[in-house]
Design a protein around this nucleic acid. Structure first.
Length: 951
RNA sequence: GCCCGGGUGGCGGAAUUGGUAGACGCGACCCCCUUAAAAGGGGUUGCCCGUGAGGGCAUGUGGGUUCGAUUCCCACCCCGGGUACCA
């Protein structure tokens, strides 16, 4: 690398490689990054670190993908490392480590492509990614690393599942409780069954009359983890069902972009909806980006309104008349309801469908069918086929009349009942009262089918006649509501509905229960077996972990739309059944064959970092309290800083919060939230090049420049920017950077590129700037030619001291605020100042410089620290503290404005009063020239800032 | 459509509560060192007019408030992300 003329002791890539490998070895040998827990013995330095305030810093752990890391991946890891190192140097006991999230679709799909077993692949990938990460010099406590695929880890994933399975949500206490308590209350008669329970026709009081199987069925209906036949997202190409969160708006799988079909299947569900309000309310207490909070709020989708019953003359039995129940956020507009719409698959449709069309039925309402039943059948067929893709506003309103009317309870008017696919079965009650005056969708339907439109809310004069007005009021044409604003009108009508028994105020959510089972191999097996009742039985804790059997034929089969999911675990006859004694003697049980979704392992890994090898418990309670407990003054405890990509805004972060709250309710954790503070790091983008066909070509083979044009193998290509990765063929690997510049330079460059939460384009040619900076720092401490220290013990000049302390002050606050880019700029300025001054660097300046550099470029800082005679590791040194005496200047330069424009600058005493400052300003030639002899009509003096004259 | 972000030199980006716009770096240009190149060092670098001193214009656009606006208010344009027949 170094040419014949290069000084022998220059800091270059080979020097960096030498320094970095030496100190990484030394750090490992001395356990420098091992974080003590409460109760651990004092360190070699005699300090009991756990007596310091704690700080838990965490990254979203990666999938061990086969292609390894590109320089975009470690951005967040470097940021947390810099912060963790800074906080360590300012007196915190910092927990920082890293694990691997290795179960789930990504690993399995990758294994499928490479034709290897997922475990082989996963282990190789973990080894490769660990090597790449280690090379960065991240200060992780390696003893605490976990992989979700280790049975010693998923043992506890299964254990948590059992906790959830053995719990129910008590709405009165608004928290989860053990199922055993529910059974005890039912047995004692202190609780009776709700009418909605799966007890069928059995009267609620008759719990004690049920046989054991019926009781189990009732209890299963209460559990937070339960099985239900629900409409699910069946993805035949992946051979599995998917959670709503894993399906795109286009109705395709997030992974692989395969077609997804809605169909009812019996699956495991998690009752996350029970926690909707707490998940919503507690967001306010979190230090998270507002955008992520908004996304979670929208996903939970709380809306308040009312359920309203609309009676019909259809008969369920001779005695019972069918009423249609709707949910509306605007019960105040009920006087404007001119028709009703049910989702085509609504269970009441068959009962409501009339025998024949009533006289004078508009032919447009019948869909050309001779009977309502025929119209319904045809419409269902047609809308079922139609994919869910396409934009809502592009879709014309369609539907058919059922030949039946319903009655609006407030005024007794009969209104026709339709089915239409613009009403979704999944939301509310799957039926709406259509109010075309105030709802644009209802209005479009009304216009298509010639239905009456009544305004019951007064629109402003400039509101277009042809549009619905969903505004605030006042109410018109609404009987006793007329004149009221929306809030009063809602309250008034809800009271009326409740008094008259035809409705009630209510809250609904968009959030659905979490579909928790997958028909894949590479996941955690459920700790569940079945007996001949086909009801699930939790395995006792002594049976954990339920190990994932080693399958040769593990790959999912790609199936077609109408096929049944086929869990690969069902292919191992010796595993699918098991002989156990569960208290009824030795019997044969059937195992659950599904596996858990990839989110399961990542829902709780932060807890395992606390106590990764504990074989008796998820985490030791004392250790858990130390790291995670809520603080009374500052709100929720938990992870103090969690950094990761915004793509997990709803999936992982919502699931993890849910599990944490269940564990909190059951007393297993001491804080109500897992992640107190969240930061989304930006993406590193990189130039990508497409040929004339639009195909991406490898970016590292492209030649040319923006001015001359870009070419690939002689053909011209066009440049775009995008997220670094395989698909755009624009990855830059950290390995290349290690070779060309070293890890410290890469770290410094990534932190210098811009604010941590901002996307930024990667520019390899700019990396050299960060290397030069380290080189100049090195040169201010070490003589390049001799390798000798060039530091003097002479005191620094007052001037240098002021610069030094101002830098320390600024760097401290920038680091505290995660503003590493400006912290680096300030260190650079100080270093430039030292470069400008010839002669040896004063030791006090070199010492502070090295300490400030330590979080950013730990290897170089460690090297210089030791050369300067430092004891132990710079990791454990104290971060410099500014001396306030040196933060103030005797004199300052302030600008002088005339009529708002800067016309000169004057040097005045820092504590100069207005009179002195103005006198100085009026003596400044540039100011005199612009005043042109006039006396200012006004003068403004901002101490320390500026002087302004107005003429 | 709705909800969040964001528009500052050739490029990445700085600018406490409204108070010197462009810190720091990349690139470019000039110079030093060198037989030469690379590396390294020194200098210049928002745009326009002017030899110069100096002047004018500049933080997406147009208004407003103010002695003074990148910062506050109103309207609009563009880019990125989320979401979408949610009753």
């Amino acid at each position: 690398m170094a040419g014949p003329e290069t000084p022998s002791y220059r800091y270059d890539a080979s020097t960096a490689a030498d320094i970095e490998s030496r100190w990484q070895y030394w750090w490992r040998a001395h356990g420098i990054y091992e974080t003590p827990d409460p109760g651990d013995p004092p360190t070699a330095e005699g300090r009991v670190l756990a007596e310091q305030p704690k700080l838990f810093v965490m990254d979203m752990f990666p999938y061990p993908s086969g292609s390894g890391l590109h320089v975009g991946h470690p951005l967040g890891y470097i940021a947390t490392d810099v912060y963790a190192r800074f906080k360590r140097m300012t007196g915190f006991n910092v927990l920082h480590t890293m694990g691997f999230d290795a179960f789930g679709l990504p690993s399995e799909e990758h294994a499928r492509q490479t034709g290897q077993h997922p475990r082989t692949n996963t282990e190789a990938n973990i080894a490769n990614m660990s090597r790449q990460l280690d090379r960065l010099g991240l200060g992780h406590d390696k003893r605490r690393a976990v992989a979700t695929t280790d049975s010693s880890y998923y043992h506890w994933t299964q254990w948590i599942f059992l906790q959830i399975f053995d719990s129910w949500f008590d709405p009165e206490r608004n928290r989860a409780r053990p199922v055993a308590e529910l059974i005890a209350e039912l047995d004692a008669g202190t609780r009776t069954l709700d009418s909605g329970d799966e007890a069928g026709p059995t009267p609620p009081s008759a719990w004690n009359a049920l046989d054991d199987t019926a009781k189990r069925r009732v209890i299963d209906g209460y559990r937070l983890a339960y099985m239900a036949e629900v409409p699910v997202n069946w993805c035949p190409a992946l051979g599995t069902v998917l959670a709503n969160e894993e399906v795109t708006a286009e109705g395709r799988s997030e992974r692989g972009n395969h077609a997804v079909f809605r169909r009812p299947l019996k699956q495991w569900m998690m009752r996350i909806t029970a926690y909707a309000d707490r998940l919503l309310e507690d967001l306010d207490r979190l230090e998270w980006p507002e955008s992520v909070k908004v996304m979670q709020r929208n996903w939970i989708g709380r809306s308040s309104g009312a359920f309203i019953s609309f009676p019909t003359d259809a008969a369920e039995t001779d005695a019972v008349r069918v009423s249609i129940e709707v949910f509306t956020t605007r019960p105040d507009t009920v006087f404007g309801a001119t028709f009703m719409v049910l989702a085509p698959e609504h269970p009441l449709v068959d009962i409501l469908t009339a025998e024949s069309w009533p006289a004078d039925t508009d032919p447009a309402w019948t869909g050309g069918a001779t009977t309502p039943a025929e119209a319904v059948a045809r419409y269902r067929d047609q809308s079922g086929r139609r994919s869910n893709t396409g934009r809502a506003e592009d879709r014309a309103k369609t539907g058919v009349y059922l030949g039946r009317d319903a009655i609006v309870a407030v005024n007794g008017s009969p209104i026709p009942v339709f089915i239409a696919d613009y009403v979704l079965m999944e939301y509310g009650t799957g039926a709406v009262m259509a109010v075309p005056g105030e709802d644009q969708r209802d209005r479009e339907f009304a216009e298509t089918f010639g239905l009456p439109i009544i305004r019951t809310v007064q629109p402003p004069p400039d509101h277009p006649d042809g549009e619905a007005y969903p505004g605030e009021g006042p109410a018109i044409n609404s009987g006793f509501l007329d004149g009221l604003g929306v809030d009063d009108a809602k309250a008034c009508i809800i009271e009326w509905l409740e008094v008259n028994g035809v409705g009630s105020g209510a809250v609904t959510y968009k959030l659905r229960d979490w579909l928790f089972s997958r028909q894949r191999y590479w996941g955690e097996p459920f700790p569940i077996v079945y007996d001949d009742t086909d009801l699930p039985i939790a395995l006792p804790e002594t049976e954990l972990p339920v190990e994932l059997p080693d399958l040769v034929d593990w790959a999912p089969r790609a199936l077609d739309e109408d096929s049944e999911p086929e869990p690969p675990l069902g292919r191992v006859p010796e595993w699918t059944t098991v002989e156990l004694d569960l208290g009824h003697g030795l019997r044969r049980y059937r195992r659950e064959l599904n596996t858990m979704p990839q989110w399961a392992g990542s829902c709780w890994y932060y807890l395992r970092y606390l106590d990764p090898t504990n074989s008796e418990a998820l985490v030791d309670p004392e250790v858990e309290r130390y790291w995670m407990a809520d603080s009374n003054e500052e709100g929720p405890g938990g992870v103090d800083l969690y950094v990761g990509g915004v793509e997990h805004a709803v999936l992982h972060l919502l699931y993890a919060r849910f599990w944490h709250k269940v564990l909190y309710d059951l007393g297993h954790v001491s804080g109500s939230e897992p992640f107190r503070r969240l930061v989304n790091q930006g993406y590193i983008q990189s130039a990508a090049y497409q040929d004339s066909r639009g195909v991406y070509v490898p970016a590292d083979e492209v030649e040319g420049s923006a001015r001359s044009g870009f070419t690939h193998r002689g053909r011209s290509v066009t440049r775009t920017f995008g997220k670094m990765g395989k698909s755009l063929k624009n990855s830059v690997t950290p390995d290349d950077m290690y070779v060309a510049y070293g890890a410290d330079t890469l770290r410094l460059y990534e932190m210098f590129m811009g604010p941590i939460d901002q996307d930024r384009p990667w520019q390899t040619r700019s990396v050299v700037g960060s290397q030069r900076m380290l080189q100049r720092i090195w040169r201010n401490v070490i003589d390049e030619n001799t390798g000798e220290l060039r530091v003097s013990d002479e005191p620094a000049t007052d001037d240098l001291r002021r610069i030094l302390h101002r830098t320390i002050d600024g760097v401290r606050s920038d680091m505290e605020d995660l503003k590493f880019n400006t912290a680096i700029a300030k260190i650079t300025e100080l270093n430039n100042e030292l470069t400008r001054r010839t002669g040896a660097t004063p030791r006090e300046a070199a010492d502070a410089l090295v300490r400030m550099l330590a979080p950013l470029a730990p290897h170089l800082a460690e090297e210089l620290w030791h050369r300067l005679g430092g004891e132990g590791s710079v990791t454990r040194a104290e971060f410099p503290t500014p001396d306030p005496a040196w933060l103030l200047d005797d004199t300052i330069e302030v600008p002088v404005q005339v009529n708002g424009k800067v016309r000169g600058r004057v040097e005045i005493a820092a504590d100069a009063d207005e009179a002195a400052a103005v006198a100085a300003a009026l003596a400044e030639p540039g100011v005199v020239a612009h005043l042109r002899g006039q006396v200012p009509s006004r003068q403004i003096f901002v101490p320390g800032r500026m002087i302004t004259f107005v003429v």
